[in-house]
Amino acid sequence: MIIKYLTYSISITFISWMVGMIVNAFLSKKESYKKLSNLNLIKSETINKRIGLKAFKWIVKNTFFKYFNPKLKFKKKVEITDLNEIRKEMTFAEISHFIGFGFVTFFVVAKLIKGNIIFGLIFMIVNVVMNLYPSLLQQENKRRIDRLIKNYREHQ
């Protein structure tokens, strides 16, 4: 039964990635999108460490997940335009995952309302790992990119 719940949760979460990208493509054309691009849920490095974001980052960098978004790679020699483009891609990935997180949360709530607590909990754990953590990781990476952009501009 647990395997069935896990399989279903992973499937819906993968679908949520596509939903997130489609909805985000429409949102990115709106004026208010700039506000979303500077969203920061957790600013504290200490909290990020405590929730396991460092371990999650290692998993993303050292497993097959590193192939999911090849646009988020640095070249050997990085220019300011590269940094801005990478930041833009990170923002798109971050917001897409947040949208996916919201999409899956509707399914979680439906399972909880129906009284299927175990299914809802498994679903939410999968959602956190596959949507929320990637968003938080992108936010952390964007803060690092912002520091690089600031340093680049100061030394020009």
Rank of each mutant, 00 (worst) to 15 (best):
S44D: 03
Y67C: 09
T46S: 09
I99K: 00
I86V: 11
L36A: 04
E94V: 07
S28R: 12
T81R: 15
I95E: 01
F74S: 07
V78P: 00
K57F: 04
E31P: 08
F92W: 07
L83G: 04
S28I: 11
K73G: 05
L36R: 00
K34S: 14
N69A: 11
T81H: 12
L41P: 00
F106L: 13
S28M: 14
L27C: 02
S32D: 09
L41H: 01
E85K: 12
E94R: 09
F98Q: 03
T46F: 13
S32E: 12
K34F: 11
K61N: 14
K54W: 12
F98N: 03
S44M: 04
G102K: 02
T46V: 14
F68Q: 10
I51G: 05
E85V: 04
T91L: 01
V60M: 08
I51N: 06
G100C: 07
I86T: 07
T91M: 02
I42C: 01
K30E: 06
K29R: 13
F92H: 07
K54E: 15
K73N: 11
I59P: 01
M90W: 08
F74N: 07
E31D: 13
K30Y: 05
T105C: 06
E79V: 07
K76F: 12
K34E: 11
N69F: 12
N40T: 10
S44H: 01
K66C: 13
